[in-house]
């Protein structure tokens, strides 16, 4: 079957989709967007988290056919998504202070093997700065979930962060640096940096 939907603001068309394919498979194998990760394919790890019409979901549990005509944001589009939000405000008004310049928090050139000059969202930068990335396989899902948390709740308590990220498994970090990263992103956001 054919599926038409929007990914990171761009209309996409996937052809010859097998009916049992998940949104995750279509993103990764048909649209060249492997950022969303395939760690469990049973909704138990959160590595494939994307926004579906704004709502964080496990893309492995969305049938490809179900996204017809809908809007998907993946980790690849997160920086743009955050930038647009900061420029345009958001419907809920819960976005906190305007994020003027995400570029300020780019990875330091001296440390960046590649990807220099890439524009990052505040939460992406905070994950790098806080040491929240080790193997990085859980990172895309955690970023999408964390970004959505901070959109909803700009000043989350530790318990709020833990609850919001309780659907995202990480095997490397013991989560402490992930907590640090979300706190850091929230603090920078509230300082309007």
């Amino acid at each position: 079957m054919r599926v038409n939907f929007t990914v990171n603001g761009r209309p996409q068309e996937a052809d010859d989709v097998w009916e049992g394919e998940s949104l995750l498979y279509v993103l990764r194998e048909r649209l060249g967007l492997p950022g969303s990760k395939n760690a469990c394919e049973q909704g138990e790890c959160g590595s494939c988290t994307v926004r579906l019409d704004g709502v964080p979901v496990c893309s492995c549990l969305v049938a490809a056919g179900q996204v017809e005509g809908r809007d998907v944001v993946t980790v690849e589009g997160l920086a743009d998504f955050a930038k647009q939000r900061s420029e345009g405000g958001c419907a809920t008004g819960a976005c906190g202070t305007t994020l003027q310049d995400a570029q300020q928090w780019q990875a330091k050139g001296t440390d960046s093997q590649t990807g220099e000059g890439t524009e990052l969202s505040p939460v992406q930068q905070a994950f790098i700065d806080a040491g929240a990335v080790q193997c990085g396989f859980c990172t895309p899902g955690l970023l999408v979930a964390s970004d959505e948390l901070l959109e909803r709740n700009p000043n989350p308590s530790d318990a709020d962060i833990r609850e919001a990220l309780s659907g995202n498994l990480c095997r490397c970090t013991g989560y402490e640096k992930i907590m640090d990263a979300v706190r850091l992103a929230a603090a920078r956001q509230s300082e309007g940096v």
């Binding site: 330091k108 440390d111 990052l120 992406q124 994950f127 790098i128 040491g131 990335v133 990172t139």
Partner: peptide
């Protein structure tokens, strides 16, 4: 505590696993 050289790629989804 320098930062990971692969950090940017890993947070943008571009790191090729």
């Amino acid at each position: 505590s320098t930062l990971r050289p692969d950090g940017t790629l890993k947070v943008t989804g571009e790191f090729a696993y």
